[in-house]
Amino acid sequence: MNGTFIVNKVACNFSFNPTARLLTVLRDNGFTEVKQGCQEGLCGACLVIIDQQLVNSCQVLAASCLQKQITTVKGIGTLHHPHIIQEAFVEAGAVQCGFCTPGMVLATYNLLNQIPQPSEEQIKQFLDGNLCRCTGYVKIINAVKIAARRLNQGNHGKN
């Protein structure tokens, strides 16, 4: 089947199988920043934001997202115009292999939209859908705190 998806604010027409997962459709169409880690909704590497909801794109059927706004990690910041959160991950040493990072960054983005100044406990609870095997999460939690502090200092320029 065919359908239009608004990916990172650009309308895209994809043809896809009616039972295809959003993850597969995105990756097949070049959005490889959405990573595939487990296909069971439990690692968070494939997170995207659909209409402000953080979801595992492997647990979403593409056919249920027609005309929806889909944001990948490239939609919140790019190499040349990184988001404060992405910069915070770099600075905090929160990126090791980086396979979980796009999902972690999106989860952080979604968290800070909802709770601008989260406590450590709130950060830990919110990131419960993101696995990371490299960092032991310590630096990731630091990165979230750094990003929250910067965003709250009114440094929203790049958002």
């Binding site: 979801v55 595992n56 647990q59 859908g129």
Partner: peptide
């Protein structure tokens, strides 16, 4: 419900 699944799964 806060303990069900994970943050992104609870959204779905």
């Amino acid at each position: 419900l806060s303990r069900a699944g994970t943050t992104p799964l609870r959204n779905r």
